[in-house]
Design a protein around this nucleic acid. Structure first.
Lengths: 364, 364
DNA sequence: GTTGGCACTCGGTAGAGTGGAGTGCCAAAC
DNA sequence: GTTTGGCACTCCACTCTACCGAGTGCCAAC
């Protein structure tokens, strides 16, 4: 905070930008995020960390603009950061960013009290994250195709309709309807159900394949085959990983242009796209994708923050925050980080067989 | 369309308004819905069904305004309908409103091809309805508490975590985690599972109560009791009926004020509120609630159209459309009607045991 | 009761003027 | 040679004014 003079060595790490320019860029970003107004040289000169006069700031700003970090809406206006400017800002954050005390206790309270099925936890977590950051939040749960089946059965719903139900060891239940023969006896169905259980249990969902059923009553075999087909097609369908989007109404407050709001919301409605987006960003090794970086046109004025949920190194989902490029990056990144690690820990605990109630021993 | 003169008897039914005033009101509504601009007397006079001069129209408009059907944004502007004006309009629709041929074939195609679990069908139906009407659409599936349980079991997910799974005869699966004792034997769990099945199957979900378990290994009994508790609490929780909201991004295009967009979207995020809203409107016996009629403040500038899904007279859910009061009521009502009846028929067919594939025999 | 005529109202738009924030540049200062 | 205060310049945002035109309310004529 208190730096003595200006002619001394650059106080923060930098590759492309010397310390003073970085400080100026930081000041512009910080101010613009706060006010949404183009930032002038006087304001920057006044801000902590920049110990030079407006005139000097102006000279540096010209350079920063030439290098693509800043842009001017028009001559004789202040500067606003470009996507590249935000990128430099997040890449050179001095401190990692922390949540305020209120938010921290909000998170703690949430994870101490939340209970119920995983889906419900994830759903409510997305609302929490949205609340914490005032942006839209996405939580994607673990995909099921590596989960093992712990129970399988086929039951009758109506005379010609059956339901295959497979319980996975991550607590999810997959189901699929199958057509039953007209006059199928209950006993045959039981036989089929037992055969199904025998073939399914212990396997991973994605291993399930339709295959010829030997040594079975042909009618039961037919049911089993059909059930295998049905479940295999469920597993093959890429879509319904658990995707929960919270706080999408906040998009409306984030952008001036109605058309932007509409197109961002429309994109959020396509869960498949959202899943791809987050995974793409994650795969690219980033935790933040700013503006055009993620390559999704309709979200060009958005920034996406992601944080993986992982148990023992294996990815088990992802949390994301979607807001305008003009956002409070450190806080948002901290929020994503905290929430994803809390979720990771909870998943790990469940996996190790602890009851959910005792996952988070109450503590400060 | 072609009505000869004006001095002859009023051509449409009316209680509060004579035929000419009704015609003028209709014209204002129709025009305003189309253009979103205040409608002047000249425009009304030009429109079919109103065979009088602008001056006469003006006189009538003064009356209509005095009676609360129209309002003027300011002197020397045209008129726009009030909520009461829209109300009269929908209450006195000459023809029930029909879908265009494109839309009709879109609906037919959809219901011929859609398949899969009920949840998925409902989800995609909400998208269809949104697409048809260009408004946000809600589809609420049947509540489960009258459904009968066709299968119940408890399985182990991890050493201390179990999962109670109950399959309902409407194809839904309810589940709840239960804590297991540390060193519970697999056989005991099987016993508990069997006991659970014995007590559950054939009952309705809402009948499930925790009760003392007699004649059982006490450890198994404890599991059964806990499972009953868990399921009972699932059943008691009012929330997660299946609520699917499609096309909420269209809200953004429907209103000018960002704040309205935000608050409407925020309301839509609260599924519980949406469920109550639709049910309230349904219970009030209306198919349309306009503006303040439904009493939900944040939706005061919205109109809600509902249509029940019913099988053999019993309510099995509801579809809804939510848009600005300035909407194409006849078309939207027709869309809700068509979709809800298609869903009703599909549910009925499933219930009667037909395979879903043959529910809608292909036809024009 | 209906109509054309007419004066009037008022919002929206276009144009001119102005204030001010902010810039770029330059010569003096450190 | 880097920094700085000074200064002329730019251009947006805002206000003020004038004006057009759509639309009204009223009234006398039909």
């Amino acid at each position: 905070m208190s730096r003595a003079h200006n002619s001394s060595g650059p106080p923060r790490p930098s590759e492309e930008l010397d310390g003073r320019r970085a400080a100026i860029l930081d000041a512009v970003v910080a101010e613009y995020v706060e006010t949404a107004q183009p930032v002038g040289s006087a304001t920057v000169a006044r801000s902590a960390g920049v110990g030079v006069s407006p005139a000097t700031v102006r000279a540096e700003m010209v350079a920063l603009e030439r290098e693509g970090y800043l842009t001017q809406p028009h001559t004789s206006a202040g500067r606003i950061p470009t996507d590249l400017g935000y990128r430099f800002f997040v890449d050179h954050l001095a401190e990692p960013g922390v949540l305020g005390p209120t938010q921290r206790s909000q998170v703690a309270r949430f994870f101490n009290h939340v209970q119920g099925e995983m889906e419900e936890v994830l759903e409510r977590t997305s609302a929490l994250l949205a609340e914490l950051t005032s942006h839209a939040a996405v939580v994607i749960g673990p995909s099921h195709d590596a989960a093992r089946i712990v129970s399988a059965q086929v039951v009758r719903l109506a005379s010609k309709v059956g339901l295959v139900v497979a319980v996975l060891d991550d607590g999810a239940v997959e189901k699929a309807t199958v057509e039953l023969d007209d006059d199928l006896a209950d006993e045959t169905l039981s036989v089929a159900s037992a055969a199904l259980a025998e073939r399914f249990v212990g396997r991973e969902l994605r291993e399930v394949r339709a295959e010829e059923q030997l040594g079975l009553d042909p009618r039961a075999a037919s049911i089993v085959t059909r059930s295998l087909e049905a479940v295999a097609s469920i597993a093959a369908r890429r879509e319904p990983e658990h995707v929960f989007i919270g706080g999408s109404s906040r998009i409306a407050s984030s952008f001036d242009a109605v058309e932007t709001v509409r197109s961002v919301l429309a994109t959020l409605e396509q869960q498949l796209v959202v899943v791809h987006l987050l995974n793409d960003v994650l795969d690219s090794g980033l935790s933040v994708a700013i503006g055009g970086e993620h390559g999704y046109e309709p979200l060009a004025s958005c920034a996406v923050i992601v944080a993986p949920i992982a148990v023992e190194g294996a990815p088990r989902g992802v949390v994301g925050i979607l807001g305008p490029t003009r956002m409070h990056y450190p806080e948002a990144m901290a929020a994503a980080e905290v929430v994803s690690s809390k979720l990771s820990r909870r998943f790990a605990a469940v996996r190790h067989g602890e009851s959910e109630d005792q996952v988070e021993p109450r503590r400060g």
